[in-house]
């Protein structure tokens, strides 16, 4: 099994006719994902390499039965695109857009929670989600993932997610699902949402968690793990040497005063029984040991 998306998930791409949307949307389709349509206002009736384009999400959903959307539009249109997806009947929204204003994110997140409680948003500013061999929505290169489980991956960082997939796949260890939750201040889906889903998924036997400086999501995840998680968790936190007060690439990766340091997160996770590793390679090796001992 996998979490959130599988081989039956029908996906539309909002922004399919743009450069990025076309590139990633078609890559996702070539991976085997059911990309059933695209949405670009004013371009309904056309197609992108055989994928039909609709004028609105509503039209696309009515015509295709899609339940998931891949939002790949510029920052100034992203909040509206996410709301249109929810209003159009989509229940799983993946937004990879980087650079959305924080106030737009906060407003959109709360509107979704209040008006569309059944809708899950992944991102923004995330690499997406891949259930290897079944469904890939986003920018992750499908060939570095290995189907069959038993490891679930949840990560705040893009390239470190690829690194984690690579470390495991090279050792012949597959993944059930790999979720990139993104590095922005208001992520739609957080660590706990994913840990909860992995804990409930019978095929996921262990979880790798990749965090970074800023915020307190890792600390909250540690509390949740301590209280609820029975499966082994390996964690790596990037940014031990990051200076305070500087945004390290991601809008959310910033140490404010003494809050959000890698050290505090690593201590919280270790206290919750998580195997905390010092670098991505060590985390990969640790997970290999755990899986081989299962």
């Amino acid at each position: 099994m996998s979490i959130f998306v599988d081989e039956n998930t029908k996906v539309i791409v909002q922004g399919l006719t743009g450069g990025q949307g076309r590139f990633h949307g078609l890559r996702n389709r070539d991976y085997g994902t059911q990309i059933v349509g695209g949405v670009t206002p004013g371009k309904g009736g056309t197609d992108v390499d055989g994928v039909p384009v609709f004028n609105s999400v509503k039209e696309a959903v009515d015509a295709t039965g899609a339940t998931a959307s891949f939002v790949v539009v510029p920052p100034k249109f992203a909040a509206a695109a996410i709301m249109e997806a929810a209003e159009g009947g989509i229940t799983f929204i993946v937004c990879i857009t980087e650079g959305i204003p924080a106030h737009d994110e906060a407003l959109t997140y709360n509107r979704l929670v209040e008006e569309f409680p059944g809708v899950r948003l992944l991102g923004p500013n995330c690499p997406g989600i891949i259930s290897p061999g079944k469904c890939n929505i986003g920018i992750t290169s499908g060939d570095i993932a290995l189907p069959g489980g038993p490891v679930g991956i949840v990560s705040r960082s893009g390239t470190l997610t690829y690194q984690a997939l690579h470390e495991l796949s090279q050792q012949g260890i597959g993944q059930t699902t790999c979720v990139g939750i993104g590095g922005d201040p208001v992520p739609g889906t957080n660590f706990i949402d994913c840990l909860e889903a992995f804990q409930a998924d019978p095929d996921t036997k262990a979880v790798m968690m990749i965090g970074e400086i800023g915020g307190s999501e890792e600390e909250r995840a540690a509390e949740w793990i301590k209280a609820n998680m029975t499966k082994p968790v390996v964690a790596y936190i990037a940014g031990v040497t990051a200076p305070a007060g500087r945004k390290m690439g991601h809008a959310g990766a910033i140490i404010s005063g003494s809050k959000g340091t890698a050290q505090a997160k690593m201590e919280a996770l270790a206290a919750a029984g998580v195997h905390v590793c010092q670098n991505p390679t060590e985390a990969g090796e640790k997970m290999v040991d755990i899986v081989r001992a299962l």
């Binding site: 960082s157 690194q163 031990v240 390290m248 890698a262």
Partner: peptide, 17 residues
């Protein structure tokens, strides 16, 4: 020089280690 913010941060850490 790294590609990706997370990998760049991680690179700083590993150099330090």
């Amino acid at each position: 020089i790294a590609n990706g913010a997370g990998l760049a941060m991680s690179t700083l850490d590993v150099v330090n280690q």
